[in-house]
Nucleic acid binder design. Structure first.
Length: 196
DNA sequence: CCCTGATTCGC
DNA sequence: GCGAATCAGG
């Protein structure tokens, strides 16, 4: 596959919409996310919400090429300092490059108008709602189907045959899917007035 | 372990 | 220019 004009167009569009490289790659087909990322860089439209590697950490090998970060200097300010020919030190204070909207994933499934908001304590109603919702689409797997990466959240009464495990993809590391992690790991505090 | 993007470098 | 391999972070 080659980067035809309209493929590049799709790439630009999706990248602009905040789609991840892998999503774009899947959409385009015939390319990997690496290819997409590589292309994105070559096209110059890289920075977005940099995740993971904002700082070029020292690689175990590679020439320390003096990278010139010719960034746009939005012009700090006109210093009234006139009688001081002092060489101004490098002003590398981040120049907040966020003139654009933080839009990220504009395509919302249309169900939850707002993202869950970490309220004070309690088992956030949002979390519970989320759970009851995902339980609908839970895979309802049996004990035998549990693996290291299936949500092990039990549902129902083990004494009845109406018992199953969520089975959805776990949240990295945890034993539960995202929704269940939400109710499983409480911020603690709900009722800490033990002294009463 | 899953994901993300960033970078390098042989092709 | 391309993108796999690798790196680095969540």
């Amino acid at each position: 596959m080659s980067w035809t004009d309209d493929r590049v167009e799709t790439l630009k569009k999706m990248w602009g919409e905040g789609q991840s490289a892998s999503q774009i790659a899947k959409e385009l087909g015939g390319v990997t996310r690496n290819a997409v990322i590589g292309k994105v860089h070559r096209l110059g439209l890289s920075n977005r919400a940099a995740t993971g590697a904002p700082a070029p950490a020292g690689k175990p090998d590679a020439k320390p090429k003096p990278e010139v970060a010719a960034e746009t200097k939005p012009k700090a300010a006109a210093k009234p300092k006139a009688t001081t020919p002092e060489p101004e030190p490098e002003v590398e204070v981040e120049a907040a490059p966020r003139p654009v909207l933080p839009m990220r994933k504009q395509i919302i499934p249309a169900g939850q108008p707002l993202p869950p908001q970490p309220s004070a304590n309690e088992i956030s109603p949002e979390a519970l709602a989320k759970v009851s919702e995902i339980e609908k689409k839970a895979k309802k797997i049996g004990l035998m189907e549990l693996t290291e990466r299936t949500c092990k959240w039990p549902v129902g009464d083990p004494a009845t045959d109406d018992f199953w495990f969520c089975g959805l993809p776990v949240q990295q590391g945890k034993p539960y899917c995202e929704a269940h992690v939400g109710v499983a790991f409480q911020p603690m505090s709900a009722r800490r007035d033990r002294r009463r």
